[in-house]
Every structure is written in structure tokens, then in C-alpha cells.
């Protein structure tokens, strides 16, 4: 468990919020799948705070922790011509990979 005294960035989202995954370039390492980039989903769960993978991979242990979320996507939003309306996909992303969807 990450130590409690760690500096954590404030969580910007809560369950139910609509978010878009940013389309950032890969800087050597990322755990944000290509297939979710630019896609809008909904925050399903706030999980834990931790270093983001890009910092962890470079041993930037002094970087601030971030809130992680489980994001739920409609399969129809992820894949063109996906035929089943109800199907969904969930995956986990850190706060800085997400941007709010206002409209």
C-alpha cells in the first residue's frame, strides 16, 4: 500500500463522471492502451493512489501519486461497427491521462 504521507495530486473525478482519454505520445513507456485513446468513457470506481506508470518506469519515486480510476467504455465507442449495444469494457487509468467531458 502506498504510504499515507506521500504527496498525492487531488482526484479530479468521481464515479459517474464522463471523461476522455488523452491522446498523448508514448514517451518510451505507457500502460494506456492505444485502443482507448481519444475515447470517452465513464468513471466506474476510484481505486487507489500511486505513481503513474511513466514515472514508475523511470524510478521517479519523488513524483506525486495520482488517483487511479476504473473507466467503463461502451464497446460501440471503442470499435467501429461493434454490433452489440449493451457490451462494455473496463480498464484502469491514472488521473493525468484523463480530461473532463463537459458537453
Amino acid at each position: 500500500m502506498p504510504p499515507a504521507e506521500r504527496k498525492s495530486l487531488p482526484a479530479r473525478f468521481e464515479p459517474g463522471d464522463r471523461v476522455r482519454v488523452k491522446e498523448l505520445p508514448n514517451l518510451y513507456y505507457s500502460r494506456t492502451q492505444m485502443y482507448v485513446r481519444g475515447v470517452i468513457g465513464t468513471v466506474a470506481v476510484c481505486t487507489y493512489t500511486d505513481l503513474k506508470p511513466e514515472d514508475e518506469a523511470w524510478s521517479r519515486d519523488d513524483a506525486p501519486y495520482e488517483q487511479y480510476y476504473i473507466i467503463r467504455f461502451r464497446q460501440k465507442d471503442l470499435w467501429a461497427e461493434y454490433p452489440f449495444d449493451k457490451d462494455t469494457l473496463q480498464t484502469e487509468l491514472p488521473d493525468s491521462w484523463l480530461e473532463p467531458v463537459t458537453a
Binding site: R31, P53, R72, F84, T88, L89, Q90, T91, E92
Partner: peptide, 10 residues
């Protein structure tokens, strides 16, 4: 059908 892609620490 809900696919859970475990890409982080869960």
C-alpha cells in the same frame, strides 16, 4: 458482456 482489461495494479 463486460471485458475487464487489467492494465495497472488491480
Amino acid at each position: 458482456i463486460r471485458v475487464e482489461d487489467s492494465n495497472q495494479k488491480c
